[in-house]
Amino acid sequence: METKRAMGMPEAELTFEAAMQRLEEIVQRLEDGDVSLEEAIELFQEGMRLSRWCDKKLRDVEQRIDLLLEEEDGAFRLVPFSGEEDEA
């Protein structure tokens, strides 16, 4: 969240997929060349920011693994899955 704010990303949660899609789109638009020079420079900067952000995500992340349990009243509960004993 902080990263996103710092980068001036939209309010909505930026997913890795959305970031990659936006990056692809930016590259495509920049390559098509039918944008103004100012826009091209902005797109370039945004693209570089997105690329760095995605790269950071790939490096920093710790995988989250949960078990999905359903309570009697139908409510869902996620319980961290350790599975250590099974792997051992």
Partner: peptide, 18 residues
């Protein structure tokens, strides 16, 4: 990661060309 590198390269060359 490779794709990101590739896209960065495309970004750079597109801007350079532009």
């Amino acid at each position: 990661a490779e794709r990101l590198v590739h896209m960065e390269e495309r970004l750079r060359s597109a801007l350079r060309r532009r």
